[in-house]
Design a protein around this nucleic acid. Sequence first.
DNA 1: TAGCATGGTAACCACAAGGTAACAGTATAG
DNA 2: CTATACTGTTACCTTGTGGTTACCATGCTA
Lengths: 225, 225
Amino acid sequence: MLILLVEDDAVLAAQTIDFLNAEGIEVDYAATLGRAREIAAQTASFDKYDAIILDMSLPDGNALSLLQQSLAGFDAPVLFCTAATYLDDKLAAFAAGALDYITKPFALPELAVRVKLLAGKVSKCNQVFELGSLHVDFSAKIVRRGNRTIVLSPQQWLLLTLLAEQAPAPVSKAQILRHIWPDSEVNNNMYKSLLTRLRYNLSRDNEPSVIQTLKGQGVALRESS
Amino acid sequence: MLILLVEDDAVLAAQTIDFLNAEGIEVDYAATLGRAREIAAQTASFDKYDAIILDMSLPDGNALSLLQQSLAGFDAPVLFCTAATYLDDKLAAFAAGALDYITKPFALPELAVRVKLLAGKVSKCNQVFELGSLHVDFSAKIVRRGNRTIVLSPQQWLLLTLLAEQAPAPVSKAQILRHIWPDSEVNNNMYKSLLTRLRYNLSRDNEPSVIQTLKGQGVALRESS
DNA sequence: TAGCATGGTAACCACAAGGTAACAGTATAG
DNA sequence: CTATACTGTTACCTTGTGGTTACCATGCTA
């Protein structure tokens, strides 16, 4: 999981980053609004972030404007944090499209929980996933196609669960790379091989693959039609 | 929108119900955990609620157990509220599957916002745009015309979402150029090609294009008339 | 009527993205 | 210690995308 932290207090930022790292969350850091905008421009979007933590009281401008920008076509959910207890601030941010807020001073464990929630990590409520003749039991870690039980390698299982969580929405290549090879330098071929192998294992005679490619957008778990 | 409020303080409950009603939110009310369980049993599920507001400090039992129950196969998202500021309580509830919390005493407008967000999270997942036989699912990135599924290239998808967001208002050429080719030098032909291709992909026999041109002003997504 | 601007369509093609198979190094199990 | 499976790597092939050009249609103006 990768998030963007926009926060001017260097000490607080350092603490936050340390804590989130310990929780397995990667953090990109912007000390100012200007820097955040640079990042947005560089990557051409905020798409690559699972969530954005946005401090409302930044020295160089109005954080609300960045919020608007992040929502203009991008999906990254925004959690804003504010020292002010003024209700109006909170309501304004919600109105602008923020999905959650936390009041300073906050407890780091709570921040971590909220970030994870925002990123949708907890939506693993569904114990089983079914699609046509494909049957995935998350808790038992069993995959079946029709009446044949399929054994997947660790990587393939990870990818399948990721796809199933988001189905039928597509999952971008970048998202998959981050999810399966969190640290290591990744090479495009590893991704291609993994996909081919998962497709092969899930395949069944005469039936089209359940893994659809949307060129340039990623892959999705859905029935062809 | 219909929600369930589980709260033992009658005065607070009445205020809350009044306020939420004024916001256009219908409220079912349970004063005790027992009553909440009855409701769950009657309707056979909490499914019919868009959200559940759950007070943690109820006289007749542990609210966490209801939380578990409400998650056992049902989809209603839970917002819990607590007078305690103990962090552990919050973390426990999050761990049990709550999606949000609010600390007493809370401001009613904030509660209303959070409830709407919570209820929206579920429906927001299925944000769709419809126009005649055209059907666009933003989160799943699926486009259908009638019962035919359409696959769009990244550029075309970007343009379609832009048009759909503003529909039925027209989008100027300059706006489109900036949105799709943010940095690069743009040539007018690229724009023309893109439009033609999107029109072609969205076309259906005998039906006029859903993309109308307003000369000099741009293009708009609307039915011809 | 010619001339020009705006907009639409079709065809071409370089090239990047995606798919497959085979091989090799390394871990893992029996 | 051997056999097996997993995963990274390379090579090669296929396909769709998107920039480009050429040409046509319409409408406005001189």
